[in-house]
């Protein structure tokens, strides 16, 4: 199924062109996904300047790593998002971003310039369809990069319960997002 998804991904040709040194291809890939990646970065680091620096760095990294992109392993925008999330979490965990630094970033996130993507509604609805405790666990894991034990500490719930909530949530999300049947 993933191969079918990859084959239908129009970004794959852009990344191939980037690997061949086509600078316009990177410009186009940036135009297509920069605002989605910035939304993700802002959600994690909550500071517009830091988030925009990450945006530059992630697309530069994509330019340099274009040769290594394997379309059989998923979509281009997922490839970008994995890099962005990882860099943003590293930055968020370092001392460079103060906890209070980012209110401006959050404001920007909520104002009118923020737009939605075709998948935004689908994923948002899938997350919204989870029981509140499962959604909270998923958000702490994905957007804050916390491990099971850290989540357990953060919300004062036994680690076994955290694991069950995450597993149940992922199982439902997998089904809702069309990646497989629940409880095979």
């Amino acid at each position: 199924m993933e191969q079918a998804v990859a084959a239908a991904d129009p970004d794959v040709d852009l990344v191939r062109a980037m690997a061949a040194g086509n600078q316009n291809a990177l410009a186009e890939l940036y135009e297509r996904h920069a605002d989605l990646m910035l939304g993700l970065a802002l959600r994690i680091v909550r500071n517009r300047r830091e988030a925009e620096d990450l945006l530059h760095d992630v697309f530069l990294e994509a330019w340099r790593a274009a040769k290594d992109f394997d379309p059989n392993r998923g979509r281009v925008r997922t490839w970008l998002a994995i890099r962005m999330r990882s860099r943003a979490l590293d930055l968020q965990k370092s001392a460079r971003v103060s906890r209070n630094a980012g209110d401006s970033g959050l404001d920007r996130l909520e104002d009118q310039e923020a737009r939605t993507s075709p998948d935004h509604g689908k994923v948002r609805a899938a997350l919204g369809g989870l029981p509140a405790d499962q959604r909270q666990a998923i958000e702490l894991a994905y957007f804050e990069g916390l491990s099971c034990s850290e989540i357990s500490e953060r919300i004062s719930v036994p680690i076994g319960t955290v694991k069950s909530r995450l597993a149940a949530a992922m199982s439902k999300l997998r089904t809702t997002l069309g990646y497989g049947k629940e409880a095979a």
């Binding site: 910035l38 939304g39 993700l40 998923g74 998002a81 962005m84």
Partner: peptide, 17 residues
């Protein structure tokens, strides 16, 4: 599951840089 986790970022709003 990896593909599922890989979609979660889409829940965020787009913000113009």
């Amino acid at each position: 599951y990896q593909a599922t986790a890989g979609e979660l970022f889409s829940a965020e709003l787009r913000v113009a840089p």
